[in-house]
Amino acid sequence: MNTQAATATGHVVHRDPVGAKTGMWLFLFTEVLLFGGLFVVYAVYRQMHTADFHEAAYELNRYMGVANTFVLLTSSLTMVLAVGALQRGQAGRSLRWLGATFALAAVFLVVKYFEWSAKYSHHIFPGQEYLKELPHGQDLFYNLYFMMTGLHGIHVVIGMIVMAVVFAKIRSGAVRAGRHGMLEYTGLYWHLVDLVWVFLLPLFYLTA
């Protein structure tokens, strides 16, 4: 529904928060289908190469996977607390929670860096000759692992960039209580990134 707010100059601003939120969800569905397509590929190849997937998954460090799940789940909490604080008009508090979310996103990437470095030192990286010498199913598993966690990692980086922009806009007062849509939709995006990881954890680290 449209809400109209008169500004100090008497100028009428038309806003449509429900429409904006609908648009954000539609975008999130395209993201769901993007990752969903990769999950379908994973499911089919796992069905065809069950033993190879099992063997290859042993190389992944499940403790790092679980630790990063804790990091992302916590970052989702700090994000909802940032939104709640801004809705109540507590901009300073909101900025601190948003900063915490940004920091946790960085921690996630640092853990990922160590994980990937360990794989790289074992010549497990897309394009490496070593992978082609492995059974075909293992090659597929590692390539899917890098594609899916890589695409997810890109989403984390984009999330951090958007958070930085929103942070500046809250500081300048452009995003504030009653006009907090931008922070709210950034939150929705961030939770989706968290949601994708919730599925990546069992598929690659826990139950392959």
Partner: peptide, 13 residues
């Protein structure tokens, strides 16, 4: 896992 997804969708989202 679907239960976790539901909690994130219903409350966080």
């Amino acid at each position: 896992t679907p239960l976790k997804a539901a909690l994130i969708l219903m409350f966080f989202m």
